[in-house]
């Protein structure tokens, strides 16, 4: 199954998505949690902590600097750029905006 959680800011999207992901994982399902927000906070609600949530975001800089290689496949993207969250959920972050840039 593939679920997307949407709604107004502050309505509880991230919190709901995190609880859904961990509940499904506890039922024995393989769960990938994808944070598609340009201001990604899903790691905080899944319980990986703020340092790990920020670390996922700096991976892009390492890519741009040539320190790590691009992942050639979907599975490898999650392996390389994801992180393990409680209950066996695998978290991946799709988008973020780090540096202010007009345009």
């Amino acid at each position: 199954m593939k679920i997307a959680v949407v709604g107004k800011g502050g309505s509880g999207k991230t919190t709901t998505a995190a609880v859904l992901a961990r509940t499904l994982a506890r039922q024995g399902k393989d769960v990938v949690a994808l944070d598609c927000d340009t201001n990604p906070n899903l790691g905080l609600s899944l319980g990986v902590g703020d340092l790990e949530t920020e670390r996922l975001l700096t991976l892009r800089d390492q890519l741009d600097d040539g320190e790590i290689d691009h992942a050639p496949s979907w599975d490898q993207i999650l392996d390389t750029f994801g992180t393990n969250a409680p209950d066996g959920v695998r978290l991946g972050v799709i988008t973020r905006i780090e540096n202010p840039d007009p345009g």
Partner: peptide, 9 residues
């Protein structure tokens, strides 16, 4: 809400 519009000026 969030960072997108602000970061884009």
């Amino acid at each position: 809400g969030g960072t997108r519009q602000a970061m884009f000026g």
